[in-house]
Amino acid sequence: MNESTAARPRALDAVAAASSESRRRAARRAESLFGAVVRTAAFAAILVIVLIFVFVGREALPLLWQDATPGHESETVTWSSLAGPTTYPDRPPRHVWQPVSTVPKYNLAPLVVGTLKTTLVAILFAGPLAVLAAILTSEFAPRWVSQVVKPTIELLAGIPSVVLGFFALMVLATWLQQILGVRYRLNALTAGIGLGIAVIPIIYTVAEDALAAVPRSYREASYALGASRWETAVRIVVPAALPGIFAGLALGFGRAVGETMIVLMASGNAALTTWPLTDSVRTLSATIAAELGEVVFGGPHYRVLFLLGVLLFLFTFAVNLAGELTVRRLRERLGGRA
C-alpha cells in the first residue's frame, strides 16, 4: 500500500506539469514519440528471429546453387554428398564426415546419429528423474521437501553449461569408465548424462507447472470417491497434466539438441555411425563449435557449418513451437490454477 500512496504525488506533479498549453502540446508529442519507440522495440524481437534465420541461412545458401568448379567436381557439396554414403573403389560405401582431407567429405549422417544418441541418453536419464521429482513436490511432499528441491532446481538451472561440460569431462567420465570398464572415457553416454543434468530444470519446471494447473476440484472429486492420495495423483492428476509433461520432455529435448559446450567437451568428438552408446560421437552443435574457428571464410566447409546451424535452428524452432502451443492449450483447457 505504501508504494501506491508514494506514487500519487508524482502523478499530481504530472498533472501540474501538463497544465499550461505549450507544455500540453509537448506532452502530446512525447506521448506519440514514446508509443512509436515502444512499438519499434517490440518489433525488434520479431526482427531478431527473422534476422537469425536470414543471416545464418545467407551464409549457407550459396551451397545450393553453386556450380561444380571444373576439375574440382569431387569437392563440390551436393544434396547427395550431404545425405548419401561416400563410395570407395576398394571398400564398401560408408557415411563419412571428414571435412579436412584431400577430398573433403561432408556427410551429415554421423553428426545426426551422434546428436540423436546423446540427446536420447539425456532424455532417458533426465526425464524420469525430473517428472517424478515434479510429482513429488506438487502432490506428496511436505513443505520442507519442496523447500529443498525447488532451490536445488534453480541452482542447477544456474550452472553454466561449460561447468557441466567440465564436470562431465573431468569427473563423470572417469567414474563411468571405472564402473563400466569402457575403452574410451569420452562417449555418448558421458555426454548424454552431462546433458541430462542440464535439461532436468526445464523438464521439472514445465511438468510442475502442468501438475499445478490441474484444478483442485479434480482432486477433491477423486478423494470424495474414496481414492487415496497416490491413486489420485497417478490416475487423475498425472493423466490430466500429461500433455504438459510431454511438452516439458519436448522442450528438454529441444534444449539438449542445441546444447553445445557439454557435448563438445565430453562426447569425444569422433564422427562415428555405430550403435554402442559407449563409442565416441560428434554432434551437430559440437561440430560447428569445433570447426568454425579453422575454416576458410566463404569456403564450402564454412557454408556447410552454417547449414548445420540452419538445421539446428529449424529443428529447435519446431520443437519449441509445438511444446509452447501444447502448454498454452493445456492451460486454457484446465482453466488456470483453480
Binding site: A42, F43, A45, I46, V48, I49, L51, I52, F55, V56, R58, E59, S161, L251, G254, R255, V257, G258, E259, T260, S285, I288, A289, L292, L305, F306, G309, L312, F313, T316, F317, V319, N320, L321, E324
Partner: peptide
C-alpha cells in the same frame, strides 16, 4: 511478439554464435 520472444529463448546458443559472426 510473444511467440517470437518464447522462440528466441529456445534458439540454441551456438546458433547465436553463428548469427553473431554472420
Amino acid at each position: 511478439v510473444n511467440l517470437a520472444v518464447s522462440n528466441l529463448a529456445g534458439v540454441p546458443s551456438i546458433v547465436f554464435g553463428l548469427f553473431g559472426l554472420g
